[in-house]
Amino acid sequence: MSRIIVVTSGKGGVGKTTTTSNLGAALAKQNRSVALIDADFGLRNLDLLLGLEERVVYTAIDVLAGECRLAQALVKDKRLKGLVLLPAAQNRNKEAVRPEQMQKIATALAKGYDYILIDCPAGIELGFRNAISAAQEALIVTTPEVAAVRDADRVIGLLEAEGVNKISLIVNRVKPHMVEENKMMSVEDVLELLGVPLNGVVPVDEKVIEATNRGEPLVLGEFESTPAMAYTNIAKRLEGEKVPFLDLMANQGNILSRLRKIFGG
């Protein structure tokens, strides 16, 4: 039984595409077959983050137009067996696709893959409705910032109204030192506001940028990094494993902040 999951956030720039690429890679690493759908028509980037941009030949639009078969449009990741990407068209806009068409593609892919991850565009217009039309589950990506949390709440409401009730949260770009100093909302704060179950916590890390520079999902990197661990854990949780959340606050605190703690700061 395959699962169709949309990765969405409302606000742009919170890490949807990074999450989709890393999660796809992490699931594939756990020997799952994964098809990633880039639903961001006109502003596709998933191919770039995966390092597959040069191998894109056909896009979802070509499949819908009958110019190629679905299997032809899929770009296979050579590093990871079982990971494929269905690219979005770059020369079209979001109106080029309708929700029913998206549904058709996702259901067709669901026959051959364990996971279908849909990278949703920002916003709540047609692009969003296309991306969620086939989804049975949703992963909400947000950051501990006011605009991102507000938009996440809006999107959760819209998903619930569409009957997507299996919703969980990924809190991205947490800065432990700021949380420590009460200058950033904690994961608990965000959870309290949004009221959906937590699926993962990803700390801010320069390695994320380095990995995207190279077009290589973090989980493929030689060195184990905290964000890579976070994504692997999210993949395991999707698989139903009980994995404790990373304690980002554990290594927190220089001498000063520890002293502050001791002295009741």
Binding site: P144, E145, V146, V149, R150, D153, R154, G157, V179, E181, N182, K183, M184, M185, S186, D189, L193, L256, R260, F263, G265
Partner: peptide, 28 residues
């Protein structure tokens, strides 16, 4: 003040209380 670097004005609390209000408004 014993610890001058300790900032009592926690911007996180601002964020949270503002969000609580605006989210309630959005949802309604």
């Amino acid at each position: 003040m014993l610890f001058p670097w300790k900032n009592n004005d926690n911007s996180k609390d601002h964020a949270k209380s503002r969000l609580k209000l605006i989210i309630a408004h959005d949802r309604a």
